[in-house]
């Protein structure tokens, strides 16, 4: 091996090249990581959804149609409709609607909620939440889960929490 003398200029330029490549790789990796956080396709249902026409809901019944996809029960009373959140207010399990006993019953700690969503048995400290519900321009029901209404704060009196028919 010949002993080539590396000049300062050559040394600095190699170092410069090396660091540039290294930082470029790091930057590329970082960009890819960032990109990974924003997937092309989101397999999550959107926060608001159309729930068909009000005529589809029978008076006095709880609709389980949107429970598995959106976590929402749509309840039809004689006066109108409201959308109940299918999340127990105790620790967040999904209650079941027991049609025979006309109540929502949580399988985790036994909390029970009435037809209206009011808590009446078990440890749940407050009623189920309701979501914003309105009639779209095409006559279909629109449920917006980004806006919720809590009974204990008196929010169920808000006209947006109830769709009068």
């Amino acid at each position: 091996m010949s002993k080539e003398k590396v000049t300062r200029r050559v040394f600095v330029s190699w170092i410069f090249l090396g660091w540039t490549l290294f930082l470029a790789c790091l930057g590329g990796l970082g960009t890819m990581l960032l990109r990974y956080l924003f997937p092309n396709v989101l397999f999550e249902p959107s926060q608001s959804f159309k729930a068909g026409y009000p005529e589809n809901y029978a008076v006095g019944e709880v609709s389980l149609l949107w429970k598995s996809k959106h976590g929402v029960w749509i309840v039809r009373t004689a006066e109108g409709l409201y959308a109940l959140s299918a999340v127990c207010t105790h620790l967040g399990c999904t209650p079941n609607w027991l049609s025979g006993e006309k109540k929502f019953k949580c399988p985790c700690h036994g909390s029970g909620f009435r037809f209206s969503g009011i808590n009446f048995e078990g440890p749940a400290p407050r009623p189920l939440e309701r979501f914003k519900i309105l009639l779209g321009d095409d006559g279909q029901i629109l449920v917006d889960k980004t806006k919720k209404f809590q009974q204990e704060k008196g929010e169920w009196n808000d006209p947006a929490s109830f769709l009068a028919i």
Partner: peptide, 18 residues
């Protein structure tokens, strides 16, 4: 997410907490 097993039991060592 939409269905909790019925009954939904914690692991046995947490059943007292549940």
């Amino acid at each position: 997410l939409a269905t909790s097993p019925n009954p939904a039991k914690a692991p046995w060592y947490f059943l007292a907490l549940q």
